[in-house]
Every structure is written in structure tokens, then in C-alpha cells.
Amino acid sequence: MPAAERPLSPHLQIYKPQLTTVLSISHRATGLALSVGTIFLVWWLLAGADSPEAYAEAQGFFGSWLGIILLIGWTYSLFFHLCNGIRHLAWDTGYGLDLPRTYATGWAVVAASAALTVIALIAGFAQWSHA
């Protein structure tokens, strides 16, 4: 391929990370993490449909340290992808595309997804300790 005579964009790592770019790639990353999570969701449902022993095994995995770490990761991923997804839907209607509002809604997504994750974890551990 002949060298281009026009200026090319610098590589991605040249740019300083900004809220907008970090949230953008995080939307993809959390989407992919949730895609992996769907496999575990189906495994959990199949175990439940199979037998009490298989279900106990699945519940045991999700109660293990690895399972808990994965569940916390998926909880945050889901709330982030949900909140930022709503931000995307607002953009699709034409709302909030100017820079001040893009940053305002961006920080709102960060705050809301963190708050929802904390609420879910508190509720989850409260329920788990009763079960």
C-alpha cells in the first residue's frame, strides 16, 4: 500500500483519556462482559431445570469467591451498560449532544451505576445472610 500523503490520525494511546472516550469504550467492555455472563445465566437455569444436586452445585459456584467476584463484576457491568444505554437512547432522540450535557450525563451515569451497584450489593448480602 502506498504511503498516504495526507495527515493520519495519531494512534489511540496518544490521546489523553477523557470521560467521553472512557465511557464509550466502557460501554463496549461491559457489553462484552455481560455477553459472557449470559452463558452462566443459561448454565444456572439449566442446572435448576435438571435436578436439586445440579442446582446446588451451580449455587455453590456463585457462592464461592470466584462466583462472588464475577457476580459483583456483572452487577456493575449491567448497571453501567443500562445507565449509559439510556444515555445513548437520549442521544438518539437528539437530546444532550452538546458538550456540557454530554459531560453532565456522563458523570450522572458514573454516579448512578455506582449507587445502584452498592444498593444491589447491600440488598444481596442482606438476603444471602438470611437464606
Binding site: 435448576g48 436439586p52 444491589a120 438476603q127
Partner: peptide
């Protein structure tokens, strides 16, 4: 969350 830690009967 409501079914965390439950057994198969609950599911």
C-alpha cells in the same frame, strides 16, 4: 437478589 442463596424448591 430476592432468590440469592435459595434452593431449587424456591426457584
Amino acid at each position: 437478589i430476592a432468590h440469592l442463596g435459595g434452593d431449587r424448591a424456591g426457584l
